[in-house]
Amino acid sequence: MKKSSKEVWVFIEQHAGKPAEVSLELLSKGRKLAEKLGGTLTAVVIGHDVQAVAKDALSYGAKEVLLADHPDLKDYKTIPYSSIMSDLVSRHQPRIVLYGATFVGRDLAPRVASFTHSGLTADCTDLQIADVTYLRKDHADLLLQIRPAFGGNIIATIITPDVPVQMATVREGVMEKVAAESPSDGKITDVSYTPDETAAVINIIERYHEESKVNLKAAPIIVAGGYGMGSKDNFSVLQELADLIGGEVAGSRAAVDAGFVPPNRQVGQTGVTVRPKLYIACGISGAIQHRAGMKNAKKIIAINIDHDAPIFNVCHYGIVGDVMEVVPMFIEAYRHKLK
């Protein structure tokens, strides 16, 4: 069998000189994957004045940072970023490349995968390395790209057996962020970038960006509502409970799609993965995509009118009843206890 590369790469997304959380999470995971492969972890940083980002990548275990630094690269733009990335991947042929499944990652990764003829799997909820026999052929150390699929109740394991580079995107919070134990003696390698005409085809006329004030991952308590809440107005009772017990309000995808809660509060495979001390699921049936994002909460309370709802299979405490009756009772009981 042809000897393949053992390099694991992580594309480091940065905004205003700060690395995205998801990129640091992926470096943490990438370190483990590289260890399993017996290979090295490399970070790719593209931007302007982003030495600090490169150093962050080293402290998360990258042995090498490939750094493209140029004033034209300050903000993400599809063409120059994907050209740089595609060129690097083509030349080095890493075994694995990981991207955050963000607005940037989801714009960039498919373009790079297309150019380099790589496999790409979106929104993985787990990544593992294993030997695989596929169509009677043995493949050593493949990346298992695991994701719920097809609307629910199916977990698919995707592999990329026949091409050199395996790519995947992962949502924020899925992997845990852990800085490397010992400082890495890694190096920063400059990647030259010369703007050409094709890179400048798209101009940014205006950009408005606000740091998200919502940080579900840091919330010790999350009060989440699903489609079963019935309306946007009904979410106010969840807000009241969250304010009372020091939590944040979140929603399932169905609740987000219905417009009950904003997308930046979505928990699940295509939202954020959380691990709070307490997760209260109100009117959430508990499809696998949702469970993927909250099953690691320390304690889970499920409130649902349907006693067969799958959410009751992952909860610690269950209440079968109407959320609009149960939640106010919960609020009252807590207030009473405070006295």
């Binding site: 003829h117 790409l120 199916i154 977990i155 394991t157 995707i158 592999i159 405490y317 209440i319």
Partner: peptide, 22 residues
């Protein structure tokens, strides 16, 4: 380039939890 290696139907087992009356 990507192939489906395995598809698992997730069948939920009756998880242990404590019930509270509404």
């Amino acid at each position: 380039p990507t192939k489906v290696h395995k598809v698992e139907y997730v069948v939920l087992e009756g998880g242990e939890h404590e019930n509270f009356e509404p």
